[in-house]
Nucleic acid binder design. Structure first.
Length: 368
DNA sequence: TGCACTAAC
DNA sequence: GCAGGTTAGTGCA
């Protein structure tokens, strides 16, 4: 794991403990099943790759060259974007109220699942999305705090007040992060992107009573997001808005760092094309094969992302917690093994009732 | 239209 | 003893 705050962690020990506690679980068995199907998918795609003819490859090469030229012609380096990411947001909110927690290893969550951990806990290898009982084993003194979403929502509202000062139309990505187009702010105040980021961090700290965040500065949303992760916590990173700077940044960037490329896509690219960085993805041998092996949407996305291209303008509002533009609504629960019809029915009833209540709030009905 | 899968926080 | 919940998008049947 390469998340912020994980250096200095005894990784071998963490891996050993996680393995020991996992290897006989049903969850682990399911992970193995999923991994096997990923490997099958990679094998199928390798066969496809082997069947590509030189003529197909040459044609794809010409197609890609034209496509890249088109992308480059549209590259827009005139906008300045910030991506803000609050540091250990949930844990930080609790630490603000109980400063004594700052010196202790803290996990927000329960024995089932950890939502976030503070930096003291991360030193032990405790991290978000880890089951609490494994965290407790890695760090027996770990202090668990029950999540309090009302509290986080209130804190998020406050820091959003700071975001609004630099961009009234900022886009939230959940409670603890946001995209800001600060082009107009920079013009208005004669500030650079770097100065805007410094000011935003100062403002956030001021209005929130000490919460810190990390900020990325770049010419588009995707690059800003990648950059906000570089100097975490309480830091910032500026990627200059020049084609040369962006291309050299992308050249060594692992494809896994691109938002939307997760663990599976990373493995597929590695297994099928032997690609692990954006630079390798752009090499003629790899890029020509993209349209022959992936869907049009996927191939186009990989190409543009590797070139460091992404949205430079605000999209439609996506904050589904407050926006009527949502596309789905659901409830789900993880429950212990059970087969008695009455128990199953009771579980289904609970879920339906919770869903009906939420749908009532929004005044919506199902069609089918 | 529905499902499986991937991904994000 | 113990591995979350909510939403979105893609691709396929």
């Amino acid at each position: 794991n390469a998340k912020a705050g994980m250096d200095g962690v005894d990784k071998a020990r963490v891996q050993q403990i996680v393995w020991e506690m996992s290897k006989d679980s049903a969850h682990f068995k399911n992970e193995q099943r999923k991994q096997a199907s990923v490997l099958e998918r990679i094998e199928r795609m390798k066969l496809q790759a082997a069947a590509i003819t030189p003529a197909e490859l040459a044609a794809a090469g010409r197609f890609l060259d034209a496509r890249i030229a088109g992308c480059e012609a549209r590259r827009d380096l005139t906008r300045t974007w910030l991506h803000v990411d609050m540091d250990c947001f949930y844990a930080a909110v609790h630490e603000r109220e109980q400063p004594e927690l700052k010196r202790l290893p803290v996990a927000v969550g329960g024995m089932g699942m950890i939502c976030t951990a503070n930096y003291v806990a991360r030193r032990f290898g405790v991290r978000s999305a880890m089951p609490g009982f494994i965290g407790k084993r890695l760090c027996p003194k770990l202090v668990f705090i029950k999540p309090d979403f009302a509290k986080y929502t209130a804190a998020a509202e406050v820091v959003r007040g700071a975001f609004r000062q630099l961009d009234p139309d900022f886009e939230s990505g959940g409670l603890d992060e946001a995209f800001l187009d600060v082009t107009d702010y920079c013009t208005r105040t004669s500030r650079s992107g770097e100065e805007a980021a410094t000011e935003l961090r100062r403002l956030v700290k001021e209005v929130s009573g000490g919460l810190t965040c990390s900020v990325g500065v770049a010419a588009n949303k995707m690059l800003a997001k990648i950059c906000s992760d570089i100097n975490k916590p309480d830091g910032q990173y500026v990627l200059p808005p020049s084609r040369a700077a962006i291309m050299s940044f992308m050249d060594t960037l692992p494809v896994r760092k691109i938002p939307c490329i997760g663990k599976v896509t990373e493995q597929v690219l590695q297994g099928v094309l032997a690609v692990s960085t954006c630079g390798q993805l752009l090499a003629p041998d790899s890029r020509c094969r993209l349209p022959l092996l992936f869907s049009e949407v996927a191939a186009g996305f990989f190409l543009e992302a590797a070139l460091g291209l992404a949205a430079t303008r605000h999209g439609p509002k996506t904050d589904t917690s407050v926006d009527p533009g949502r596309k789905g609504i659901s409830h789900e629960r993880t429950f212990r093994n059970m087969s008695a019809p009455a128990e199953l029915e009771a579980m289904a009833k609970q879920l339906v009732e919770a869903l009906v209540a939420d749908m009532g709030e929004e005044d919506i009905e199902g069609r089918n």
